[in-house]
Design a protein around this nucleic acid. Structure first.
Length: 396
RNA sequence: GGAGGAGUGCCGGAGCGGCCAAUCGGAGCAGACUGUAAAUCUGCCGCCUGGAAGGGCUACACAGGUUCGAAUCCUGUCUCCUCCA
């Protein structure tokens, strides 16, 4: 395999990368043209991919485009333990069928970004199903408590007298063993995975294998502008989100996030990034325009050009001009004296009638474009009800 | 095995016999503003009824009990945590 050019390597190891360990080694191998096995794992308890994951997956794809091989590991065993990164709550064990279904969902999204033809899919159960107690003891005996406590979140919890389950220590060990099993050359992950990735290196070394390099990618901040993007925090933009939805969510990110989103999720050049930074400080430039461009690029990347343009048009119409969307959900009127408050609750625009009444009294409800505060406003078929900024339902 | 502590609304966390559907913060929703950004201000934020005032119901781990009256006291159960071994 032909080696990569110094420029390519520079881009590969710098753009959208938090840290590379060991940088010199990986650089040399890329230049030399070694075909590398790139390890990426996922936990089938959480099958949905969001833009935060996309950062790393794009990096994988860049490596693939130079000829390297991705090995995707389905973490069907570690899923049962639960990654201790962050606050862990004991997770229910998934049935084999659920794991399979989740893996399927995950991969559909995964291959929107990663090249399937250069990907090998492996299941942890291939090597862990045959593990017995002796193997477990052997594996665990290689590590010490001190090593585990080197990890920041373990240490923190330990200091604060918070419980750490023994199985949580197993999580990084199993993940590390994966690296041994598939003979990984480079493992990818977010910066919060650093410890786990390093354990992989150590284990490989102990076993006499060349230790993998690791490449961590920065954590993308979610739509709230504060915390890392995550499904459980509800601040995520999903790869499987519909184009309009995706477009809208991207438009709602705080301006401060623009540059980092461009840097981590698009290929625009370093120079353009710098220019954009300047533009954002210019009074005459409306950041909304830059955000629209971003939304267009991302939707196009995950869908296609047409979907992106349609999503933008949809955004302009419903959000910016506050016009009616092309498609409005319909809900049948109740036969007997349908009143506004009942209908709103029944049509699912409010969780309960009490909430429906609250919304009406707060002036959040319009019928055919007219603000209505009468709870018992009589509805007729064809009326279009708007609740809040842009939730519509048509009576039929 | 022993000692002690804790379980409150979506989350955190007050309350510790009536004034408690429950202080406060966060999240969320709505309104104003606006670039569906951020920030800010205002209102709401268990369910049912009512235009509202009001009324009713269900709720403070679970099950009982004491009391005119319990999230608050007692008993039992479950769960979690800490310390000693």
């Amino acid at each position: 395999m032909k080696g990569a050019s110094p420029e390519q390597v520079e881009y590969l190891l710098k753009r959208g990368v938090a840290e590379v360990i060991v940088e010199e080694d990986l650089k040399d191998r890329l230049l030399a043209g070694d075909r590398l096995r790139l390890k990426e794992g996922f936990d089938p308890s959480f099958p949905d991919i969001h833009l935060g994951h996309v950062v790393g997956l794009r990096k994988l794809r860049q490596f693939q485009d130079l000829g390297h091989q991705v090995v995707l590991i389905v973490g069907d065993w570690t899923a049962q333990i639960g990654d201790p990164s962050g606050q862990t709550v004991t997770r229910p064990m998934l049935s084999a069928d659920a794991v399979k279904a989740n893996a399927q969902t995950y991969m559909e999204q995964f291959f929107k970004i990663v090249d399937e033809s250069k990907t090998e899919v492996r299941w942890q159960s291939e090597w862990f199903a045959g593990f017995n107690l002796a193997d477990v003891i052997q594996l665990t005996s290689k590590f010490t408590l001190a090593q585990m406590l080197a990890r920041e979140d373990f240490n923190q919890r330990y200091q604060q007298n918070q419980p750490i389950s023994i199985t949580e220590f197993l999580y990084p060990l199993l993940q590390a063993y994966d690296s041994v099993a598939i003979e990984a050359d480079v493992e990818f992950g977010g910066t919060d995975q650093k410890f786990n990735l390093l354990v992989g290196r150590e284990l490989q070394q102990m076993i006499g294998m060349k230790p993998q390099n690791i490449l961590t990618t920065p954590l993308l901040i979610g739509t709230d502008g504060v915390k890392k993007m995550s499904k459980s925090l509800g601040n995520y933009i999903g790869v499987a989100d519909l184009p309009e939805e995706m477009f809208g969510k991207i438009m709602s990110i705080p301006d401060e996030l623009l540059i980092s989103y461009y840097e981590l999720l698009t290929d625009i050049s370093h120079k353009e990034l710098m220019d954009m930074g300047l533009a954002l400080n210019d009074e005459n430039v409306n950041p909304m325009q830059l955000k629209k461009k971003l939304a267009l690029q991302i939707v196009e990347y995950l869908y296609d050009n047409k979907a992106a343009l349609d999503a933008e048009a949809h955004f302009r119409q419903t959000v910016q001009k506050r016009e009616l969307p092309d498609e409005i959900n319909e809900h049948p009127l109740n036969t007997k004296e349908p009143t506004l408050k009942d209908f709103i609750a029944l049509a699912g625009l409010a969780k309960s009638r009490t909430e429906a009444k609250r919304l009406i009294s707060q002036g959040a409800v319009e019928v055919d474009g007219q603000n209505v505060t009468d709870m018992n406003y009589p509805l007729k078929p064809g009326n279009i009800i708007k609740v809040g900024k842009r939730r519509y339902v048509k009576c039929i």
